[in-house]
Design a protein around this nucleic acid. Sequence first.
DNA 1: AACCAATGGTTTGAATAATGAACCAACAAG
DNA 2: CTTGTTGGTTCATTATTCAAACCATTGGTT
Lengths: 268, 268
Amino acid sequence: MGTASKALSLLNYFTRSQPQIGLSDMARLSGINKATVHRLMGELADHGFVEQVGAGREYRLGPAFLRLAALREKAVPMRELALAELTKLSGLTGETSHMSLLNGEVLSNLTYSYAHKHGTMVMMEDAEVLELHSTGSGLAVLAFSPAPFVDAILSKPLVARTPETVTDPAAIQALLPKIRKRGMAWSIGGYERDVYSHAVPIFDAGSQCIGAMAVAAPVSRITDELRATIQTELALAARRTTRVLGGFPPDTFPTFSPAEPPAESELT
Amino acid sequence: MGTASKALSLLNYFTRSQPQIGLSDMARLSGINKATVHRLMGELADHGFVEQVGAGREYRLGPAFLRLAALREKAVPMRELALAELTKLSGLTGETSHMSLLNGEVLSNLTYSYAHKHGTMVMMEDAEVLELHSTGSGLAVLAFSPAPFVDAILSKPLVARTPETVTDPAAIQALLPKIRKRGMAWSIGGYERDVYSHAVPIFDAGSQCIGAMAVAAPVSRITDELRATIQTELALAARRTTRVLGGFPPDTFPTFSPAEPPAESELT
DNA sequence: AACCAATGGTTTGAATAATGAACCAACAAG
DNA sequence: CTTGTTGGTTCATTATTCAAACCATTGGTT
């Protein structure tokens, strides 16, 4: 791994739950020598990518990202375009919709839209991390990712987020052909209890899967009718999103047929 | 300069007007060897900080910034807090207000708020770059920055954005003590014609100047009354913003006195 | 106080990686 | 067929990273 990669990889240890990291912790987390970490963090700090805060001299992400994110969004208004589709999608389905991007071995949430139609709804957060094996979005991405990548993901220990989470690699592998065939994944309570999630992959200009668009509803609200609405509208919205982002689904990607309600036996 | 710094500095060549840069161009712009640039861009691309696009294989900023910016904003909701103050400020003054952060030798716009009170207003953009010598915000920052930094900025060629821009380093140096004394800078038509801008510096926990908050109004709309309102409210809003961001004005920072309307002779 | 275990930060020669000039191959214009 | 681009690669030279030790400071225990 090159020096620049090392410096950049340090940034990945900052998370929502651990927004500040000290020097020694960072050296431990990254497995990189403390002296090197110190130098790298110093260079990152010089460019505003991290900043040192008060007492413990811990590091946290710096203000440079706000500027660069704005420039990125100006050049490629992914978030804006996705949000436009999500807003429509939430309106049509009455449920929370979101889009997430593949980032290494996890998905990170890009943006989301709530429907304020019901008293309860599935909550999302910006930059929320979604695992590939336990979420509908993750399964959608896995199904349309290269086999070596899938194998790498599934060969690692799979955390059970809920009692319903499927953690058997073989069982997950078995799901993928079905997802590939219908162009849509679903997951019931795999990530959070009582959340029924539908997800469709999103592709870039090279037909590589770069993320997923999804609709998440409380299990209790799901009916055949709502399921049909979600599936129809989500498939359309995701297809439009891929296109509007300049991407193309692979030639093998199916046109989702709404007249194909899932048998109870294939619910997952 | 270390390897990591070189890689990070490459990111600064992407701008609003030049969002895509080829390998050779990047090598020229940065003065770094092409082979090195190639490797560094490859590493940046591996982490999603840049991506290569289609035909010319040019590079542009990658999607990783959206995630990291969201994490940063979650940890330190600068933008959100600033926007809350700006919204109030625009409401009270009826004019466009904005906040920008020092990034190297320029300010980059963090966020802004429009007042929809009049048919015309000063327009802003996210991540817009403001020069230190030609904007009210820039002068406010210069006045509260270390002398070596100010000297470094003013020793470089100063671009005249409009016929009104002051480009004489000595003349600008002469303004700074006055700005320090009153805790507020103003600029008339220095950056864009017909824009009258007031600006107050924002400080961090170490009383370092990190940016500025400003109100920009069309020159034609300025009256003594509006000027007094802007100055009073801006001074208060900026002070609240510094505090709410966890910062402290330096001990020497004056309490702006609204009962001190500028004589016409000190307009700049 | 004395001690211990942390912390952030710095220093050392031996191991490792980055560097830059030259070099390809591909494409375009003349 | 030259000339001048482009993105990308090679390899001896050069600079950086590594590990392990060491400081100075802090906070908690005995």
